[in-house]
């Protein structure tokens, strides 16, 4: 393996590791569930993408022919990450998890929970 490819793979791996770590730090540091959703779902898509591309490059060079099946995992994660985030946000809203006090326009949360437009008055109140 030439030195340039080794450097490329190492740099991609380090970038990936950095973003994955940032995602987990965010998961620990951020103050409430709604903000916590942002860090892992976003950071892991690029982090995993970089690691998978590094694996793709390395395997292609080692085996001597193009090896692109890691793309399958990348695509799968890219498609599923927003769905997971959306489901978790729905769950958090449904469980009436409190948002951080300084969150702006918190009055929208109750309408969002009932899937009503923001200007609708809740009928049963």
């Amino acid at each position: 393996m030439s030195i340039w490819i080794e450097i490329l793979v190492s740099v991609l791996l380090l970038i990936g590791g950095f973003f994955v770590l940032v995602g987990s730090i965010g998961l620990c540091r951020l103050p409430d569930i709604y903000t916590r959703l942002h860090a892992p779902t976003k950071a892991t898509t690029v982090g995993m993408g970089a690691i998978l591309i590094a694996s793709m490059v390395m395997m292609s060079v080692e085996e001597g022919h193009l090896s692109v099946h890691e793309l399958l995992i990348t695509l799968f994660l890219l498609i599923t990450a927003p769905i997971t985030a959306h489901m978790l946000a729905k769950t958090a809203l449904h469980h009436e998890n409190r948002a951080l006090k300084r969150t702006q326009s918190q009055q929208l949360m109750s309408n969002a929970r009932e899937q009503l437009p923001p200007d609708a008055n809740r009928s049963h109140e």
């Binding site: 994955v20 998961l27 916590r36």
Partner: peptide, 16 residues
């Protein structure tokens, strides 16, 4: 929901 989110992140990291 925090626990589910943590579990979700854990399996993505284990793939890596």
């Amino acid at each position: 929901s925090d626990r589910i989110l943590a579990l979700d992140t854990m399996y993505i990291n284990s793939i890596a």
